[in-house]
């Protein structure tokens, strides 16, 4: 547990693990809503994208055909909320033929083993 006091407030390491494709279920969208609200709490926030979750960051999402709102531009706004630590799983990217050039935001590519270490280091993990 790494907790530090900052201006009298507890700062914890929050990790949001995004595991699902952006459409097909509501988990990805509602996860992003937690991240945006949570940003106001000044915690030490990271996001990891694994399995089909890497598709959430795919460029050029076209959703008109399924009558859903394309919420992918919101990931670009995370920077303004000081949410800047975004990690993607190398294995998940490779398995889906994706490279960082396919993604709408800057990310750090980590192997699953490195991600496991990162998860180990967190205080709070939200898994969506």
């Amino acid at each position: 547990m790494s907790e530090e006091m900052m201006e009298g407030e507890v700062v914890k390491k929050f990790m949001y693990i995004n595991r699902r494709a952006p459409y097909g279920s509501i988990y990805a969208l509602e996860s992003l809503e937690v991240v945006l609200i949570g940003a106001a709490f000044d915690q030490d926030v990271s996001l990891a994208f694994v399995d089909d979750g890497v598709f959430e960051l795919k460029k050029d999402q076209e959703t008109a055909g399924i009558d859903m709102k394309n919420f992918s531009p919101t990931y670009r706004a995370l920077e303004m909320y000081d949410v800047e630590k975004l990690y993607v799983s190398k294995e998940s990217m490779d398995a889906r033929g994706l490279t960082v050039d396919d993604l709408i935001v800057d990310v750090e590519v980590k192997t699953d083993a490195e991600l496991a270490d990162l998860f180990d280091d967190q205080d709070v993990i939200f898994s969506f």
Binding site: F14, V34, I37, G38, A40, F41, Q43, D123, S127
Partner: peptide, 17 residues
């Protein structure tokens, strides 16, 4: 609101999902 979830994560020793 969702702030209640974040607060729970901050306040609790363990958040179990």
């Amino acid at each position: 609101g969702l702030g209640q979830l974040i607060e729970a994560g901050v306040q609790a020793d363990r958040l179990v999902v």
